[in-house]
């Protein structure tokens, strides 16, 4: 045992002593390549950032640091004179927040039951939520449109071309990957905790609300962030459902606004993009570990 340890140690020092200059060169190559990668990753983002301070309001001759930087694009944006970008941002925030709250509520309740109770139909429910994930959104797209068209005849604010319709579609898919993620986390919390709460006289609901809920905050955060980012960044469904400028989300509004002509409106577009997207991008970078962990278990980001 002792001999073995000694020999490995010796070999390591030997190798390091021999390879040292090689290793330094290796590190420098790594650093150079990584810096090139960072430039590649950052260049488009920095160009947007620069353009948002470029008063010329065009992509033509764009530079990362504009010639006469000014806040004029942001002023145009906030004056609301040219475009309803702030309105689109509000729409996106409304849709994503409400969807996130409802999705969290629905999944946390379902996951609690699926984790804590044993009842007939439980396995079937779990399998069903898994099986419906096999169907890609492409299958339902036409039906989403026709269904909301029909619902809108009865309840106008849930129909096509409404934020309400968009929200109910997002919430309808609440079960699925999220419920699994959540149920998995519930399963890691020892049942002794609920048992002792119940021995102390807590009802099922009290056990859930006062004992378990605070313990699952991390997974609530992950599912909440994934849902918020997923809905905020979604382009397909709002593109299909929304027709009027006033109900556009930021994704549909901004991309429609810039259209095909990059000779004008580029500055205001980038300013709107920076305002709308910066918070979510920063949140993503800060929480990257949790987000990737959640994504790897569920779907891939949209």
């Amino acid at each position: 045992m002792a001999t073995a340890t000694r020999t490995t140690t010796r070999r390591r020092t030997d190798r390091e002593g021999m390879v040292m200059p090689n290793r330094r060169r290796n590190l420098i190559i790594r650093l150079v390549l990584l810096i090139l990668g960072c430039i590649f990753a950052l260049y488009p983002v920095l160009l947007i950032l620069g353009a948002s301070f470029d008063p010329r309001d065009t992509l033509s001759g764009a530079r990362i640091i504009p010639e006469n930087p000014s806040l004029v694009n942001y002023q145009t944006l906030f004056s609301g004179a040219q475009t309803p970008i702030l309105r689109w941002l509000m729409n996106s925030i409304i849709v994503s927040s409400i969807s996130t709250v409802i999705v969290l509520a629905l999944t946390v309740l379902a996951a609690y039951s699926l984790s804590r109770f044993r009842f007939s139909g439980r396995r079937t429910t779990l399998l069903a939520t898994l099986v419906i994930q096999v169907f890609p959104i492409a299958v339902s797209l036409v039906a989403f449109y026709l269904l909301l068209d029909q619902i809108g005849e009865i309840v106008p604010w849930l129909g096509l071309n409404t934020l309400g319709g968009l929200i109910i579609l997002y919430c309808g898919g609440a079960l699925g990957a999220n419920a699994f993620l959540m149920k998995g986390y519930f399963d890691t919390i020892p049942r002794d905790i609920d048992e002792s709460a119940k021995v102390d006289g807590a009802s099922e609901w009290q056990t859930f609300a006062w004992i378990i809920l605070p313990l699952i905050r991390p997974i609530l955060a992950v599912v909440g962030i994934l849902t918020f980012i997923g809905t905020f960044n979604d382009y397909l469904i709002p593109r299909v459902l929304l027709r009027d400028t006033q109900v556009f989300t930021l994704a549909v509004g901004l991309t429609t606004y810039i259209g095909n002509d990059f000779s004008q409106d580029w500055g205001v577009f980038t300013a709107g993009a920076i305002i709308g997207v910066l918070p979510i991008t920063i949140a993503f970078i800060v929480l990257q570990t949790q987000i990737i962990g959640g994504l790897a278990q569920g779907a891939v980001k949209g």
Binding site: L106, A110, S113, I132, F135, V139, S140, G172, G176, A179
Partner: peptide, 24 residues
């Protein structure tokens, strides 16, 4: 009782996921 916790999510799933798949 255990279904009370699940039925709201299930209703949404049926109306907005399962039904559209069938409808399509």
């Amino acid at each position: 009782y255990p279904w009370r916790w699940i039925v709201p999510a299930l209703a949404g799933m049926f109306l907005l996921v399962v039904y559209p798949i069938g409808y399509s």
